[in-house]
Amino acid sequence: MSESFAFLSDMVDYGPQILNGLINTLLLAGTISVTGLFAGILIFRLTLSENRFIRKSTASYISFFIGTPLIVLLFLMYYGLPQWGIKLSPFAIAAIGFTLNIAAYNSRYLSAAYNGIDQQQLMAASAQGFSSRQIFSLIILPQTLRRAIPGLTNQVALNIKDSSIAFLIQYVDFFAQMQEQASLNFQYLKVYAVTGAIYLLLVSLVIFGSKRLETRYAIPH
């Protein structure tokens, strides 16, 4: 009893730092979710390019980022760039690395959604005289975004979870603060169990929100 009380009081004592870490986690996850979405749309647009070279390079980009661990890219920037005199903050490195990586995944969700839409609509739009830029922004994008909601929101949940690797490049996020806490009170099991529960809660909120979004923006059949 007294032991769990001590554990709780530790948590409370350390509360401000933990809260600060939580804010950093949400800041990073939020940032990369937004930048990753826009970058993903851009990559997706490039996969539809008329230019063969652009299409090929985009495919390689996607394949490379899906095939290589993100942490390698983060370490490359964190430990490698200073060699050239470029020193970026951990947040900047995480934001850039995650965005490049998430863009590859999001573009895949969008491509899958694009493959599901009726190609005759696009022909009809061309026949009506829309430019390819107009067709993309007026017809393709609204439909693929809606159809890709499950994949895209699932990516947001992944972003929250994956942002926890940023402590490895000294970004002081929620997980980093909890590790600090664990190393202070040696209650590794309890601290990491609480950590897991809080991540689970955050992810659950995203899943809940995604279900709402899906029903709200469902395309009528």
Binding site: I165, Y188, A193, T195, Y199
Partner: peptide, 18 residues
């Protein structure tokens, strides 16, 4: 729903404590 590193640390650093 739980990040890999949290599960990994729970197992690797947490379980020895019991």
């Amino acid at each position: 729903g739980i990040p890999l590193l949290v599960v990994l640390f729970l197992v690797f650093f947490g379980l020895p404590s019991i």
